[in-house]
């Protein structure tokens, strides 16, 4: 199938949808809510946004898991 044929395949497919139109609206709204609202404002990658290198991230996690013991050294 050529590129044009492929384009037509998808274009005609989307155009002929019935219940699919509603579903696509739901999918797009859902993806917007998930990525543009929840991910952006509420679900930041804690280690990714608070530390700049993997070494710092590793040090932080190590501190978290050895915290109480480390005070003894």
């Amino acid at each position: 199938m050529s590129i044009t044929g492929l384009y037509r395949f998808y274009r005609d497919g989307f155009r002929s949808m019935t219940v699919g139109r509603t579903l696509w609206k739901i999918i797009l709204i859902k993806l917007f809510v998930m990525f543009a609202i929840l991910k952006l404002f509420f679900f930041q990658d804690y280690l990714g946004s608070n530390f700049s290198t993997d070494e710092e991230r590793a040090d932080h996690v190590l501190q978290q898991i050895t915290g109480p013991a480390e005070n003894n050294h």
Partner: peptide, 28 residues
């Protein structure tokens, strides 16, 4: 198709939670 469309990507939220709520685990 209806079930697939409504359910698609709902699992990605679990990955959001890994990075935010479970970062020690996620890193390890």
């Amino acid at each position: 198709g209806i079930n697939f469309a409504i359910g698609v990507a709902t699992g990605i939220i679990l990955e959001f939670e890994f990075g935010t709520n479970w970062s020690n685990y996620s890193w390890m």
